[in-house]
Amino acid sequence: MSGGRFAIGDDEYMLSDVMAPPLYVLGDDAPAHFEQSRAALQRLLATDFELEDSLPPTRWGVRPVMAKVTGADETLQELLTAEGAVRIAPQTDDHDFIRRLLMLEKQARTARVGLWALAEYRIFDAAQAGGAIGAFNLIEGTVLRAEKHGSRFYLNFGSDFREDFTVSAASRLYSRWARDGLDLGSLTGSRIRARGHVEAINGPSIDLKHPLQIERLD
């Protein structure tokens, strides 16, 4: 297991809305801070704790959950975020909870605690986003153009869409988020932070699945 996944008997669970250094990576070496994040979770799980399903199980049967130490006010997600054992990977519809996690992440990042002290988990500038390909990363930059093409809406961070960093979302999500107050089309000229798995699709690219994968920095 990892710093965000654990098993009880034959059942496997994952903490929703956070991302620990992953267990499954290419190569023989565990990613940076993997053992420390796993130890942080195991320390919390050594006490009595409570689980609540937060999303349907994944296709592999893993159950995303909210977890709390019995009698505590803070969730395991909040405790792990505060000590820099995980990063925020928005999944659920509990936006207030995710925003609390983002604030805790910001505090941990500013204090350079846990994984935030390591170069492997730095925030990439959009101009150097090629170095972020192949993993979950945070990338900051100014949106040059925001526009719809076909069935997707794109935020372009450079003049060459075939090479520069791009963030995109399915048009159905764009339309839904616009009704809820996040109009991606209004972000031209805005400095933002995007988070997600960075793929090589006409340059480095993040496919948005959740509106809080985007944070406005201006």
Rank of each mutant, 00 (worst) to 15 (best):
D10P: 04
M14N: 10
I139S: 09
V198N: 04
A111Y: 09
R172I: 12
D29W: 06
S205K: 04
Q91L: 00
T92H: 09
I139A: 07
D218T: 11
Q36H: 06
D11H: 06
T47P: 00
S16R: 06
F97M: 05
K148C: 06
T70G: 01
D48H: 07
P21Q: 04
T58K: 10
F136I: 15
K209D: 08
V62P: 04
V198A: 11
E74S: 13
H149C: 11
W177H: 07
D183W: 00
A117K: 04
G185Y: 04
F157H: 06
T70H: 05
A127V: 13
S190C: 10
A169N: 08
L15C: 02
E163P: 03
N137G: 13
I88R: 00
G181Q: 08
R43P: 08
E120Y: 08
S190T: 12
K209P: 02
W60M: 13
R176K: 14
R172V: 14
Q42H: 12
L208Q: 06
D96E: 14
A82I: 10
R38Q: 09
F34W: 10
E120S: 07
E50T: 10
R193H: 07
D93Y: 12
M14K: 10
R100P: 14
A7S: 09
Y13V: 02
D11F: 05
R43D: 14
R172N: 13
F124Q: 02
F153R: 06
A85M: 07
R100S: 12
F97H: 08
N137P: 09
I98S: 01
H197L: 14
H149I: 15
L44S: 03
E74K: 09
G203Y: 02
R100V: 12
R216N: 07
D73R: 14
E52D: 11
A40V: 12
D28L: 08
G4Y: 01
M1I: 06
E74Q: 11
A169W: 03
E52R: 14
I123T: 13
